[in-house]
Structures are given as C-alpha cells and as structure tokens.
Simulated scan of single mutants.
Amino acid sequence: MSEAVLYEQDGGVVTLTLNDPATRNALSPDIIDTLLAHVERINADLSVGCVILTGAGKAFCSGGNVKKIGERAAGLPIPAEVRLGYRHGVQRLPMALHGLEAPLIAAVNGPAIGVGCDLAAMCDIRLAGASARFAESFLRVGLVSGDGGAWFLPRVVGLSKAYEMTFTGDFVDAGQALTMGLVSQVVEDEALLDAVRALAHRIAAQPPHALRLSKRLIRDSQRVDLAASLEMAASMQALAQHTEDHREAMAALAEKRAPQYSGR
C-alpha cells in the first residue's frame, strides 16, 4: 500500500493522514487512490467505529497541485477528456467518502484550501486547530469546484455562506469557521489531535451496527421526504433491535454498568 495516506488503528479508531507535507498535502492521484483503498477496507471492517482524517505537517490540504493544473491547461485537452478526467479522477473521492459507513472526523490542522476545503466539508464532523484557514478559492484560478464542493459546502454552512465563500474566495480563519458552523470546535494546535481522538473514541465505543445505521439514516434522510425517512428508520430499527448489542445495551443500562459490545 502506498504511503501517500498513512493508516493507523488504535482500538476502534482509524487515523488517515495525508502524507505529502512537501506540497502541504496537495491532492494527487496517489493520495486519491490510497484514500479510496482505505475507505473500502474500513467499510468491510466492523471493528472500525470512527475515522479521523488529517494532514501531515502544518497543513490539512492545500488543494490541487497548481503546477500540474497549469501544465494541463497549457496542453489544451479537449473538453470531453477533461470531463472524463474528473469523473474517473478526483470525483471518485466525494462518492467514496460520502459512502464511508463509519463516522468521519476532520482534524483540520492548518490550511484547507480549494479542494482541501471541500475535503473537510465531505467529513461528518470538523474540528480545527487555531491556525486552520479555509478558502473556497477556485475562482482565484478561474475554475469552479469540480470535486463536489458545490454539493457539500451549502449543506455544511448554508447557501448564503457557501455563495459568499465561493464568490469571494476569501480566507476564513478558525474563529470565523466556528461561527458559521464550518467546524464544531476550535482548539489550540498542539491539542487538536488529542481532542479529536477523544471524540473519536467516544463515538467508536457505540454499538457498531447501530452506529453505522445511524450515520446512514441521517445521511440518506437529507435527500428524501419525511415519509421515506420514517420508512428507512423503521427498517433500520428492526435490524438494530435484533442485534445482540441492543440486548447488551439494555442489560447494561438496567445493571448500571458499562456495556461490552461484540458487533453482533
């Protein structure tokens, strides 16, 4: 497996670290392919209760590789080739992360620019270090967000703020990100990973099947009406109520002890 994204597991928590600090973790085909492989691995492993996504060094993700984007533009590929390049390249990433069954927390440890901002928005929860900065900066290079940001960002910060971030390309610091709901917590840089790991372990301690079903229910309810959401909830509840972990949770509650979940 490529070292472009490091994979570390501690109990039920997996940490994925974008590992190209020389480019401030600019998104590359190698990073994309490795992330996709890790997502597939996690979806098949019920022992993973929560995933952390962060960047090596002092950046979360600086966006696309501007030099390579310039080289590609100079070659003037035909539009059909560009379209296919996106569909079979970076656009696989939002589909994969949206389909990740375990909860995903972004530990934004520095700049999250362009596709880096969108990558953070693809996560379920975002915590930021005090030095984190965000920018939906595609217009600065005469481009649009081709990686799903137009779908994810309004769902995170609301339509008006998404428009403002996109149309201006302005940098948003950690405090502003907290105010607009782009992140849920801001902590000092040196305490960021400890704070994220503590949250991740709390999440990973939940019953595995019910946890993944809960994420799916919230996610899928965003695109259906109330009746359809209730139908999904009823079906998922039927599954959850027939797990051993549900019975263990009820027994532990009655006996006033910590539950011991088996994933069955």
Rank of each mutant, 00 (worst) to 15 (best):
C117K: 03
M122Q: 07
C123S: 05
D124S: 02
D124E: 06
R126P: 05
R126W: 04
L127Y: 06
G129C: 13
A135G: 13
S137A: 15
S137K: 09
F138S: 10
L139V: 12
R140W: 08
V141E: 15
G142H: 04
G142V: 04
L143N: 09
V144A: 14
G149E: 04
A150W: 07
L153I: 15
P154A: 04
R155E: 06
S160Q: 14
K161Q: 14
Y163P: 04
Y163Q: 12
F167A: 15
T168L: 01
T168P: 02
G169E: 10
D173C: 05
A177L: 10
T179G: 06
M180P: 07
V186A: 05
E188L: 13
E188Q: 12
L193R: 03
D194E: 13
R197P: 06
Q206D: 12
A210K: 07
A210P: 05
L211G: 05
L213M: 13
S214Q: 05
K215N: 06
R216E: 14
R216G: 09
I218Q: 08
I218M: 11
D225G: 08
D225Q: 04
A227F: 13
A227W: 09
S229M: 10
M232Q: 15
A234D: 14
S235P: 00
S235A: 12
M236P: 06
M236W: 09
Q237S: 15
